[in-house]
Design a protein around this nucleic acid. Structure first.
Length: 117
DNA sequence: ACCATGACGCACA
DNA sequence: ATGTGCGCCATGG
């Protein structure tokens, strides 16, 4: 699938989220200059779950390992949100990175929240 | 161009 | 705190 400009922006933003931290769909929406498109952002991520092969085409020139940590993107209220591979798996991956989750909510959400300034 | 969908967000009750 | 409704926006048919 050809990555359209919108997706490129979304993925670019995603890549900046450090391990062990999280961000939100809305934050990304703002970061790419479309504050109201939070929903569309999720849509974009869903389309290319890990987008390994597809994205590779676009970033192959700059990155050797084009990982898009889309599992670090959660809802604004600190809940997990959806995930193409199952939100269950999403939680697992996050915990694996050190993110604590309690009853579907991120612990210390404000603290580990990554802002795109 | 119109309609339906969906990894969202916010206001309200 | 919990559930419902409605608005938003990028896709795809």
């Amino acid at each position: 699938m050809k990555t359209n400009p919108f997706q490129k922006l979304v993925y670019a933003a995603c890549r900046k989220i450090p391990k062990g931290r999280v961000s939100t769909y809305q934050a990304i929406a703002r970061a790419i200059g479309k504050p109201k498109s939070a929903r569309a952002v999720g849509n974009a991520l869903n389309k290319n779950p890990f987008a390994l092969a597809s994205i590779r085409q676009d970033v192959s020139s700059s990155r050797s390992g084009p990982k898009i940590p889309c599992h670090r993107v959660v809802k604004s209220d600190g809940t997990i949100g959806g995930f193409a591979q199952g939100s269950k798996n999403k939680i697992k991956m996050l915990e694996k990175e050190g993110v604590k989750i309690k009853n579907g909510k991120i612990n210390e959400f404000k603290e580990i929240f990554f802002k795109f300034s």
